[in-house]
Design a protein around this nucleic acid. Sequence first.
DNA 1: CCACTACTAAACAAGC
DNA 2: GGCTTGTTTAGTAGTG
Length: 665
Amino acid sequence: MFQCVLSSSVLQPHSTSCLFKHLFYHSATPASQKQPEPAVRAPFVKLCIFSALQVARQLLLQQQQVSGLKSPKRNDKQPALQVPVSVAMMTPQVITPQQMQQILQQQVLSPQQLQVLLQQQQALMLQQQQLQEFYKKQQEQLQLQLIQQQHAGKQPKEQQQVATQQLAFQQQLLQMQQLQQQHLLALQRQGLLTIQPGQPALPLQPLAQGMIPTELQQLWKEVTSAHSAEETTGNNHSSLDLTTTCVSSSAPSKTSLIMNPHASTNGQLSVHPPKRESLSHEEHPHSHPLYGHGVCKWPGCEAVCEDFQSFLKHLNSEHALDDRSTAQCRVQMQVVQQLELQLAKDKERLQAMMTHLHVKSTEPKAAPQPLNLVSSVTLSKSASEASPQSLPHTPTTPTAPLTPVTQGPSVITTTNMHTVGPIRRRYSDKYNVPISSADIAQNQEFYKNAEVRPPFTYASLIRQAILESPEKQLTLNEIYNWFTRMFAYFRRNAATWKNAVRHNLSLHKCFVRVENVKGAVWTVDEVEFQKRRPQKISGNPSLIKNMQSSHAYCTPLNAALQASMAENSIPLYTTASMGNPTLGSLASAMREELNGAMEHTNSNESDSSPGRSPLQAVHPVHVKEEPLDPEEAEGPLSLVTTANHSPDFDHDRDYEDEPVNEDME
DNA sequence: CCACTACTAAACAAGC
DNA sequence: GGCTTGTTTAGTAGTG
């Protein structure tokens, strides 16, 4: 029932490759992030890893942006706009695997390993310093050359060479910094989880770009010094120290708090945890944010506490206000801060993506028809936001999945639709948007509101409309309504697309007309429908290959979709019961289609379909002309009303009020 | 170049 | 007669 589905046209080879890229991106990213999680792992460690990744990623981002600005070379090759885009796309993949590995491995470090780590760290520092020096020299050289050229006006090549060298070094630097960052965080974590003999704080200036470096530095100092203090002195002493440490060390944090408004609240919360806790648990005897499921939730602790009382005991004894706890708090603060930062970034990216989808890259030919888009609001918004890391695609791919830049057929202006005469546009193949599951789910709302042509063939859409109905049958008018309900695009220019719908219904064998008491309804002959694509696919070996290779993505694809839908509390394909059935079901139908296509590639022709869709083993009527159908016996009740989407149909009326529309209800 | 598919336009018929 | 529904044909365009 839940199958991967894409419209037949969507599966055209061209778009398929894009799709796979896309899918790979979507599937690879989360997978790698969760990657090899050891069985036993404190949540704290997860947080640390996560934050480490975020830090590194952020670092990389900022670095790239900086370097993108600095190096003229980069701008030569690609529009400045695109640089951050590709970076944004790549970062998750670039960072994750190795870093994960390292971080995870480092998690179980023995003292010796720690030693090694530290040595590595130092070595890194050294290398980095060297690199930096080199880099400086290069810069100076470049400056010099620039000056010379300004006077002499020549030798651009050399300059370029230097620039590229510079770039390369920047990248190396970047990598070093990443590694460094990573080591630092690993060490931090270790320092908290195991007692780490005091290693002098390391010079950390190069880290500056990534995240508040002074804070990190401070953190590191504190953590290490705290441990050494703990080792050398007793607990009593340290509990005395804490206050001082707390006070003195809070200075840098405060500065950062000022810089980051979000952090301030967190800072407040986490800086004085012990006090708060004692207060809070008095007020709310059995709810404590640090206690849950009989386990202490203090980062890295996970001590089992039978009851709340013992937890309190544990809390007061093990996590008293001492240097260590303070340091841990600070780290936690960092973590939260980083998460917030990341969240902000992701939000921004999401915004930019959405904006981008509403906007049109305005380029191609002096098109008679303007390129689209939705509202001026989004437009203006996009102007300011679309720049940084929004675009989901690398500049190198000519066919950006979500934005068919080419001749604007995929998008049509509202205003021009009526006036512009017949515009031939073909959206299914070329301009087709390869669609990942997430896209589908996400874009559903988008298509509902934005007058963007959906990247599905009429046949697929019709089928979807029909399958979505509880009886798996719709009248023509109901199909129309579905179109207008689901796609803003189809709220205009009704004559054209309605004609196309009728044309498709008549033309394709997979659509079966069933006479009924009250008229005629259309159903889908799934067998026929499935037959359609194999032809296409079977003719093209490369496609088959792609399809097969893509099979592996189907699962994560589904998972991702379902997850995203679950997040939005969108039920899957329970059409009859839910208020807004369309979103989930469209997506699921898309999956279905994809799966169906793949089944056919795997088991060509053979009658695999009946098993697959008991649900729509509707009417195996192959002769279109035949009005009579076993279906007729089934009952005339269904078509009478649109009981299933009664709520939605009010919307339909709205749409139908439009000038062009000549629907009758 | 050809076959195939998809989209668009339009003519036409039947029924209400 | 006007409209919807349904069928059919023709032309265009993209892809392999």
